[in-house]
Write a protein that binds this DNA or RNA. Sequence first.
DNA 1: GAATAATATATGTATATACATGCATTATTG
DNA 2: CAATAATGCATGTATATACATATATTATTC
Lengths: 150, 150
Amino acid sequence: MKLETAIQSSGFKNEKQKAVVNIMYTAYHVKSRISMVLKDYGLTPEQYNVLRILKGKHPVQMCVKDIAERLIERSSNVPRIVDRLELKKLVKRSQSGIDRRETVITLAQAGINLLEAVNPVLETSHDQISDMSEADIRQLNELLDRYLKE
Amino acid sequence: MKLETAIQSSGFKNEKQKAVVNIMYTAYHVKSRISMVLKDYGLTPEQYNVLRILKGKHPVQMCVKDIAERLIERSSNVPRIVDRLELKKLVKRSQSGIDRRETVITLAQAGINLLEAVNPVLETSHDQISDMSEADIRQLNELLDRYLKE
DNA sequence: GAATAATATATGTATATACATGCATTATTG
DNA sequence: CAATAATGCATGTATATACATATATTATTC
């Protein structure tokens, strides 16, 4: 659906004003779709992201700070997300022997199993989210890579 | 910053998988920037959006459902957002005479004044968010318009 | 090496979303 | 027109963010 129809608005002052809304609108729908897939597996997008990050290092443990740095949406909330993952026995939490301020987290076998079940479903969903050609998607990625300054 | 650097990840399986993350990452930063601007005026992005929607119809009242339909991120939370705007005396809430199930909301003068103060600052921020040329931004908008199916 | 600063995590509060549910009112149906 | 369904809003719960603050531990500085 075209943006203007979806939010029942029109007449952005210029393309930059429109882009801001367009990016947020598109992201909202992408995230909604991901949430629906994850819901069948009892995960929120945030919980999934933490599991995914842990899997990237597994079997090496990661501390809370390292996880936070790798999140798409930086979060001060990692301890509480880990709380919920721990309750579901998807991760294990323990104190670091090296720096005792750090809490280190390891992916549990149940977490690995869950990721292996979710990941192919999620990838299929991602592949199906858009009808655009590979070339157009590549161009979209290039423009997004350049969109934010610095 | 390039996406892969920012989230310290690399090797997306394909461009579609990357686009999903890229869109959410970009939107997160856009929204963060907007939040910072609005914070100086005591508003959250959600509260601002409700005010903006009300202004689009002002001085005509809108019911909760009409507001929800125009939000970028559909929300079941409009009554509570209106609670907070009402506490700040930015809007007025009353019961509809026509359909007594409906709660109708009007923008108060303080809300109009606040929008008139915020809007130019927000527009400047939107214009400055990216260095890209007008042509590139236009292309980004076209691709985003086509990204989501239907 | 004691005092201070910095760091890592946890936690409290306000606000938000998603979802389920409840209540009042309006519309529909038989 | 009485019974039922649908609608509009409000509210409760779990989870999330942003921000402020607390606590424990480590690093730095004098």
